[in-house]
Write a protein that binds this DNA or RNA. Sequence first.
DNA 1: TTGTTTGGTAAACACTGTTTAGTACATTTG
DNA 2: CAAATGTACTAAACAGTGTTTACCAAACAA
Lengths: 204, 204
Amino acid sequence: MGIAERKEREKEEMRELILRAASKIFMEDGFEKTSIRKIADAIEYSPATIYLYYRDKNELLHGLHVEAFQKMMQEFAQVVPISDPFARLVEMGHQYIKFGTHNPELYNLMFLMDAPMEAIACRNEIWDDGLRAFDALRVVVADCIKAGYFKETDVETISMTIWSYIHGLVTIYLKGRMKMFDDDRELERMQQSFSLFIKMLKAI
Amino acid sequence: MGIAERKEREKEEMRELILRAASKIFMEDGFEKTSIRKIADAIEYSPATIYLYYRDKNELLHGLHVEAFQKMMQEFAQVVPISDPFARLVEMGHQYIKFGTHNPELYNLMFLMDAPMEAIACRNEIWDDGLRAFDALRVVVADCIKAGYFKETDVETISMTIWSYIHGLVTIYLKGRMKMFDDDRELERMQQSFSLFIKMLKAI
DNA sequence: TTGTTTGGTAAACACTGTTTAGTACATTTG
DNA sequence: CAAATGTACTAAACAGTGTTTACCAAACAA
């Protein structure tokens, strides 16, 4: 019975076709302009067809959210060769800031928007992508402790604190809340703050 | 010519009437359900009337945003009596977390949403409310330095780092990104992380 | 008492996500 | 092979959204 398999394959291809079109529009025009009708137009199908492959827009956005995490984890992989765990942690921070500032729409989707989380909640699942990313941080923090960098030993709390700081920094920047400083030294300010935070980390 | 003044007063009263209705709906049903038509219904005017008093929805949301900052600054005022500057800084952090977790919709409006910032940008103004709140932090940090709490002396960078951390913490919580830890210890985790951050601050 | 200004609105415009009913074609069955 | 079933797809509608336009009636100024 190759037919059932072919149909399964075709279904997956259609899901992928929709996701690719959604991704293109999302990256080019941002979230606000990514409408079901626009996606349907791009793939030359009717809007209703999309609902045969994704239960709602939340699920579709969750699909993009998954891809965004893959992309971020890919960039995190660059830090693996760094042997010193603290230097690895610092570079991970740099990569995080770089990813956020270079992919504002993706960052929004991953860490701020409700839509992908609602899709997860609806399926009674856990935020697996977030957990994996956080685990990557936990591992590096644990390595730092092993290497004697921190007196503090609560990996979870240290990781949470680091993530909070860097997420806050990126979010303030992305949401235009740094424009209150009239000068155009936003990135410089971020760099200075990050340096101070690294100093603080060294002391715990 | 009392008529012009009366008209001015009536205009201001109408703006206030709209804002009160908007605020009520915003607090009760959240941002997503705060539509122009719903506000119009509440005050028993047509939707078009609202546009005679606010140029668009962004301006209306900016009005709520201003009130939200007033509310937050009011709660910050509670820490003024604390004489020790570092204890005052810590309590300010507590107040910030409390305000954010107790007023998720307001916090969103103040620090995450685009709408109020677009209203500001449209009028070629600066984010005054944010600046005033940040100044409150700067003052306390400066007091800490004066009292010899920090070796570091860059008030701006220290303040930015503190704000980034605490904003990140609150945002992770509010945007449901802490649900990845399956347990129900979200607030406890926040408290633990905050304690660690205070420890880190003491060391700079 | 005219003429003008002003406050307010009904209706329309151009969108949005989503559902329903129905069609045309592919597949399975007798 | 023909009839019955299943499936992929869509046009149209539903119930919203922010916003603009054309118009009306009442208040004001001359």
